[in-house]
Measured scan of single mutants.
Amino acid sequence: MASQGTKRSYEQMETDGERQNATEIRASVGKMIGGIGRFYIQMCTELKLSDYEGRLIQNSLTIERMVLSAFDERRNKYLEEHPSAGKDPKKTGGPIYRRVNGKWMRELILYDKEEIRRIWRQANNGDDATAGLTHMMIWHSNLNDATYQRTRALVRTGMDPRMCSLMQGSTLPRRSGAAGAAVKGVGTMVMELVRMIKRGINDRNFWRGENGRKTRIAYERMCNILKGKFQTAAQKAMMDQVRESRNPGNAEFEDLTFLARSALILRGSVAHKSCLPACVYGPAVASGYDFEREGYSLVGIDPFRLLQNSQVYSLIRPNENPAHKSQLVWMACHSAAFEDLRVLSFIKGTKVLPRGKLSTRGVQIASNENMETMESSTLELRSRYWAIRTRSGGNTNQQRASAGQISIQPTFSVQRNLPFDRTTIMAAFNGNTEGRTSDMRTEIIRMMESARPEDVSFQGRGVFELSDEKAASPIVPSFDMSNEGSYFFGDNAEEYDN
């Protein structure tokens, strides 16, 4: 783990906690998980779902989305002020799938948001429990990260689609708070800032007046979040320049895209947490497990152990491969979309394939898809080993990566060399080191050039047997250095459309 220093740990961010010791953190995270579980059980009762239907990941996603929508204050306010045809701002819903006479049927349900809020609060001892809501947002974000390569979004903001390893959390809503900021990748933060800068260039009043003052505060806050992700002084200094700019424009845009590229080699610290679907927490609570009393951590053995003992089902389209669908969801559960496939294969105990080789589309089923041909199958979400999630980018030494994705962002704290394609990355730096950030740029390029592919990161860190909950005997895996390590390699994943 990167030293926490003055930073709060993510469990504290996750639970809005002030400084807590490890036991208190485990208890408050457990409380959050228990609340999600209780809410899910109650919703299944309301909807009269069978046990099997309640364990269907598509039903879980609909129920999670309903509660997130019920608590989305800004959108609710907007919907009330701008009524649109056929949208009731006070209601929320989605597809629920039921097994009827041996076939899967889709039923569109509609609930009062007020009623959903009441059920959620009741499951969370009367609190709004925003930490639990954020947790579900991060699960949705991790699922998107594993399912889609955001080529269009990258290109629109002047970045290269091969930089997708920097895009963790790119679909997280803005209201996801400190826990959300911690899991956002460098590219995601750059993209958010670039969008602001572009608006400022096109709209003279963007930075002016009372609204402009708020915009400015948001801009500086985002700059500080991004600065905190960088691990070298030169990158941090460049972020200070971007933040202090009187009138952010093209120079800042250039600096930010430069920094994003540099992060492929001088990786930023991005938190990883295993956020599971509500249909995993519900049955665990129903079986009598007391998360608050037992304590829970999002970055240790607990999620692995929970998945070892969970039964989750998914709808499967006619030509999809259930094992591939399982891999997709497994990666999402562990926030591992940008991790090295060699490491993932070792931990999972079966070969993890790149996205383009998977015969599976996303987990969600569109409303126009034919239910007649839908089957369902068990998702295999178990693992051979477990490993500690990392909050750091690993040290800054790398190795060759593949054509589709030119770097990785480690999820697990496991000893290995970190793949990246130096030639491709360095070719993108057209040696432009003039301007006010020239000395920093020169320094950053120097550090990137001296990074050695064969150097090892996370020295001495290994994986653990599932029986080793105290992480007492690390097993340090050895990897084939020459092997392909990137998930979005030469990829044809669908595009994420909101």
Rank of each mutant, 00 (worst) to 15 (best):
M1F: 13
M1E: 13
Q4E: 05
G5K: 04
R8L: 08
S9E: 03
T15Q: 01
E18Y: 08
A22Q: 06
E24L: 15
S28N: 13
K31G: 03
I33E: 01
I33A: 13
I33M: 14
I33H: 03
I36E: 10
F39G: 09
Y40T: 01
Y40P: 04
Q42R: 09
Q42A: 02
E53W: 06
L56R: 01
Y78P: 05
E81K: 07
H82R: 10
P83G: 11
A85L: 01
G94R: 11
Y97A: 05
R98A: 00
N101H: 13
G102H: 14
E107H: 10
I109L: 13
L110H: 12
D112S: 05
I116G: 00
R117H: 13
W120Y: 09
Q122G: 04
G126I: 04
A131D: 08
T134Q: 08
M137Y: 06
I138A: 03
H140C: 00
S141P: 08
L143I: 06
D145Q: 03
T147C: 09
T151D: 03
T151V: 08
P161Y: 01
P161N: 07
M163C: 14
T171C: 15
L172E: 06
R175F: 09
S176P: 06
A182S: 13
V186G: 01
V186F: 10
G187L: 00
V194I: 13
R195K: 13
K198W: 09
N211P: 06
N211A: 06
R213Y: 09
K214N: 09
R216N: 06
I217C: 06
I217P: 04
A218F: 15
A218P: 07
Y219F: 12
E220D: 13
C223V: 05
I225N: 13
K229N: 14
T232E: 10
T232H: 11
K236M: 12
K236W: 03
A237V: 11
Q241A: 05
V242M: 09
R243H: 09
R246T: 11
P248H: 05
F253Q: 11
E254G: 11
L256P: 12
T257R: 00
R261Q: 11
L264F: 07
L264N: 07
L264C: 14
I265M: 12
A271T: 06
A271V: 02
A271M: 01
S274Q: 05
C275S: 15
C279L: 14
V280N: 00
S287M: 14
G288E: 13
Y289D: 03
F291K: 01
R293G: 03
E294R: 05
S297I: 07
S297G: 13
D302H: 14
F304E: 02
R305G: 14
Q311Y: 12
S314R: 04
S314T: 05
I316E: 12
P318A: 08
A323L: 08
K325P: 01
Q327N: 03
L328M: 15
L328G: 00
W330A: 01
C333T: 15
A337V: 11
F338R: 05
G362C: 07
N368W: 02
E369G: 10
T373M: 14
L379T: 12
Y385Q: 14
W386C: 11
A387W: 05
G394M: 07
T396Y: 01
Q399N: 07
Q399P: 13
S402Y: 12
A403N: 15
S407L: 00
S407R: 07
V414Y: 09
N417I: 13
T433S: 14
R436E: 06
R436D: 02
S438F: 05
S438C: 12
E443K: 09
I444Q: 06
M448V: 08
M448L: 14
R452M: 06
E454P: 09
V456T: 08
F458A: 00
R461Q: 11
V463R: 07
E465T: 04
L466W: 03
L466S: 01
A471S: 09
A471F: 03
I475M: 12
V476M: 14
S482P: 04
E484K: 12
Y487M: 09
N492L: 01
Y496T: 01
D497V: 11
